[in-house]
């Protein structure tokens, strides 16, 4: 089963390397990893998506906790949470297809961030299913490039990961 794990770490150089090294070393499977700031100065927040059974995930969280620069590890898979990912898609579009693509963009509440004579760059946020569906609809038009952030996640109020 796929788990979502929020990890608070010291915002120091090399911490991300320690985390990813741990996964390589112990043979755990990372589906996605994102890192960015948290609400506190000096602390960064990593969101991990990991595949594994309960025992494997228990090991992942414990091994992460052993890293000195890891402050808190929370498996939030079973919490009420919001998951988001940002995707940029460059899709072929000329006068004959542009309006049809723009309709799809509208339906998905995505946004066009760049227009050129033969292509559009679209940004879309959402959970994985939404992004997959969007990508599938655009594929027939000719996708030139995709860039994804990986997932960030937050537990709904009142619970907090601190």
């Amino acid at each position: 089963m796929r788990h979502t794990i929020a990890v608070l770490v010291e915002n120091k150089s090399g911490v991300l390397a320690r985390v990813s090294n741990l996964f390589r070393r112990r043979g755990y499977n990372i589906e996605s990893i994102t890192v960015g700031k948290s609400e506190r100065e000096g602390i960064a927040r990593i969101t991990l998506e990991v595949d594994g059974d309960e025992l494997a995930i228990e090991q992942v969280t414990k091994q992460l906790n052993k890293l000195i620069e890891v402050i808190k590890v929370s498996d939030i898979t079973h919490d009420e949470m919001i998951e988001r990912e940002l995707m940029l898609i460059k899709v072929s579009a000329d006068t004959s297809t542009r309006s049809e693509i723009l309709q799809i963009v509208d339906i998905f509440r995505a946004g066009v961030v760049d227009v050129s004579p033969k292509a559009l760059v679209i940004e879309i946020t959402g959970d994985r299913d939404k992004l997959d569906a969007f990508e599938a609809l655009l594929r027939p038009f000719g996708i030139k490039e995709i860039a994804c952030t990986g997932k960030v996640a937050m537990v709904r109020h009142p619970k907090e990961i601190k």
Partner: peptide
């Protein structure tokens, strides 16, 4: 003393 040793090799 190491929580990571619990259930690592033997449950």
């Amino acid at each position: 003393i190491d929580p990571a040793e619990i259930n690592k090799n033997v449950v």
